[in-house]
Amino acid sequence: MSAPAFTRGFDIESQDYERAGEASASIKQALRQLGIGADILRRVSVVAYEAEMNLVIHSLGGQLSIRVDPEGIVLTAEDRGPGISDIESAMRAGFSTADDRARDMGFGAGMGLPNMRRNADEFLIESRPGVGTRLEARFHLG
């Protein structure tokens, strides 16, 4: 299938649990309007939501953005720190450094990054402690 080129970005505030998830819901709504199929729509939405929650829980703030072109969908989450010192551990299911507040919200179980990797067709993460983290999830269309 083909979809028109489309980009959108959302600023995500650190610790803003009230609004957390709104950007992902907007992304889902926009992708649905673009005619993206149900399976890929759900996978992108799950990755967006987990990425958004990670920005809220762990980062000092950042941006969640989406780009759709005929080849595929690219979801990017980029933050302003604090960065991840041990990405290998962070990618392991069950590993978490989230606080009680995140757990009270139903997150921080150490499933976020593994969930993202499972749902994306390609998943890249790079991080520099003291600088920030950037993750990119790609989804193939067609």
Binding site: E18, A20, G21, S24, A25, K28, A38, R42, S45, V46, A48, Y49, D104, M105, G106, F107
Partner: peptide, 22 residues
């Protein structure tokens, strides 16, 4: 999507999760 979620979590994220997963 045709799964029922049984939970004790009564904040917005239960609804948000339902929304994300249809």
């Amino acid at each position: 999507e045709k799964t029922v979620l049984l939970t004790g979590l009564t904040n917005m994220h239960a609804v948000r999760t339902a929304e994300i997963l249809d």
